[in-house]
Amino acid sequence: MRPPAPAEPGAQALELRGLVKRFGATVAVAGLDLTIPAGSFYGMVGPNGAGKTTTLSMATGLLTPDAGTVLVHGIDLWRRPVEAAPLLGVLPDGLRLFDRLTGPELISYAGLLRGMDRDVLATRRDDLVEALDLRGAGSTLVADYSAGMTKKVALACALVHAPRLLVLDEPFEAVDPVSGAAIRGILQQFVAAGGTVVLSSHVMALVERVCDHVAVVAGGRVLAAGPLDEVRADRDLEERFVELLGGSAQARELTWLRPSSG
């Protein structure tokens, strides 16, 4: 386990300060503060509707915040987007891809949009296709990919320009165990090389296994954040999570839920 990174300025990969987002009368994110140290493998957990996707969208430039700032390695993402964007690799959840391209074409497209040199791009594209096991689908349109394949090619698009910070929304959803292991391996390698990963998930076991830091988010706020061991305090992350949310571990008994009750 990696020791907590020192708190000096510039060593923070991502700083969210007072983020607010309202959708009509609903407050999705209510003044969220979160500091993610460089070199950490950060997990964001929370129940459905906690504001994870909204937060990560604002942190990656996809959704304008109503208030607050986002600093990517000290650069204000919403003030100086052109400087901050190259540092960021983004995998959103629930957004489409240009699915009339093949997987390799989509990776090239992502690289060229970021202004990458063609020779470098071609090499990296082939490496990514190899590493994420997309070879078999290399000449198939993304429209015909399975959900897991689509996730993998989107991840490749996030990695191709070698960012310093990766922000991934539900990267393991719909991914089979073998591909999941491959993705995990790539991310761990990325962190070992000095990169930072932020991912959201609602699978506690997975976050416990791969992350060294964790933030528990609910109702658009951070309930607890820090190194994994501090947050879970010698307990199971799932128990701690339920405790933080104030729900009882014992669900209301559904007395009618029996095969005999018809």
């Binding site: 060229l112 949009l113 202004g115 063609r118 000449s139």
Partner: peptide
């Protein structure tokens, strides 16, 4: 079945904008 990559393109390297416009 398609040619592996019709997006990458060929030719001179250019600025960020030129590469993106071509893509």
């Amino acid at each position: 079945r398609r040619r592996p990559d019709a997006v990458l393109g060929k030719g001179r390297e250019g600025s960020h904008g030129r590469l993106a416009a071509g893509a």
